[in-house]
Design a protein around this nucleic acid. Structure first.
Lengths: 232, 232
DNA sequence: CGCCATTGTCATTCAGTCGTAACAAAACAC
DNA sequence: GTGTTTTGTTACGACTGAATGACAATGGCG
């Protein structure tokens, strides 16, 4: 966090909030980018993919949720964590937000303290991937630059979807994700795929990890979803 | 909340509001301290640092905002959550308040019910269950993000219903719940299930806690129901 | 074009979990 | 003490959700 300055994009139409957040972010040693609506956001993202996006729920034109969904569809932005800014009373819509693959929520009005805490929490969670794009966890190593997986020194052959799934898991370990969330994060939002398909790819992922006896890392949480965890 | 009485400081110049709030707080089992202006507030805080501060926006002399800022600077009071009381129409100024690190807002006129709800929410957030929803009690840890239970570092295998039951207990400890209440809270209202079913799940919960010798946390209150308590 | 890898879906099998009833044990009232 | 009420415990059938394997469709590549 201290070494590499994180870039945060704020998508918010109210300039007062935007300025406040930008000020707080800069004071916390992050680089603040901003956009007033979805269209502007997309152009900003086009120039530089931010490390995290703060997204207002209600936006003129395309809504925050729609933008989130769109971002999840794009390979370039699929992995960028999104924190939604919602007004009080909109919390009831949480479900649809989580379904869109949003990482967290902050309800307005919020303190900059809370916002920063959430940002740090999400980044910690999403962390793992260092500068070179190498994640190492539970005896596995994913090199996203080389697009390869290693177990120790031994390279592991893995299919494209299983690779993305594993990569997502390793950068979001110790947390349950529903099938729907996995579809959003790994497949990209708005894709028309059966939820049960996730099961199959979990199976395939486990099968490739089996000969390395690393299949126990992918855990089933009955009634909830799946989890990647280093503790049995 | 029930064990340790929380001290709440009300900084408000209108005595009518002050009294009403103080009355509501005491009825809710909290200790109310009060001050009419910033200077008085600081002297009260000097004697005892409260667990939460209710701060009027407009105060004679130093404004609430300034006081909040000052409290945030002091190491002793930096972590004390602050809820701002604002008159309607001042909401536009929210931004500057949020920047001062205020945790929440209540707009006058407010109901004591809403105020209490906000107080509890802020306390839950800043104190016990915060950020990702980790509850720790009696040597057990429930991580709702990971959907997991730990005893120390050791993960505990637990079924879905037992998990929900334990989670409810740990977030509502030191209090008896009837079987009917447990059914409402853990099973969800409108489900028709025999009351005695609760017994069975209590049994199952105890069984999974037994090998950790944590089963004594789940206590029977004859004629009333069950209770989760850290004291034997 | 034919081959192979990969993908999504389905049907089937499997395993875990649930609620209930039945009986044993404990606590209580008298 | 006895009788009654309340709770503990176990076993079991029904059910749900997950694992698995097979299959057809797709698409890249030589």
């Amino acid at each position: 966090m201290a070494l590499v300055q994180k870039h945060i994009l704020i998508v918010e139409d109210e300039s007062s909030i935007r300025d406040m957040v930008a000020f707080a972010l800069r004071k916390a040693g992050m680089e603040a980018m901003h956009a007033a609506d979805a269209r502007a956001a997309q152009s900003v993202i086009g120039e530089r993919v931010p490390d995290l996006i703060l997204l207002d729920w209600m936006l003129p034109g395309m809504s925050g949720i729609d933008l989130a969904r769109r971002l999840r569809k794009d390979d370039l932005t699929r992995e960028v964590p999104i924190i939604m800014l919602t007004a009080r009373g909109e919390e009831t819509d949480r479900v649809s937000g989580l379904d869109a693959g949003v990482d967290d929520y902050v309800v307005k009005p919020f303190s900059t303290r809370e916002l920063l805490a959430r940002i740090r929490a999400v980044m910690r969670r999403t962390h793992g991937e260092d500068a070179d794009g190498v994640v190492e966890l539970g005896g596995l190593r994913v090199d996203s630059a080389a697009h390869r997986v290693f177990c120790g020194e031994q390279p592991v052959h893995i299919g494209p979807t299983e690779y993305r799934l594993l990569h997502f898991f390793m950068t979001h370990a110790e947390r349950v994700y529903t099938r729907s969330q996995l579809l959003d994060h790994v497949w990209g939002g708005g894709v028309y795929v059966e939820e049960r398909t996730v099961d199959v790819h979990i199976r395939r992922l486990r099968k490739t990890l089996e000969p390395l006896s690393k299949d126990a890392l992918v855990q089933t949480v009955r009634g909830a979803g799946y989890r990647f965890s280093t503790s049995v």
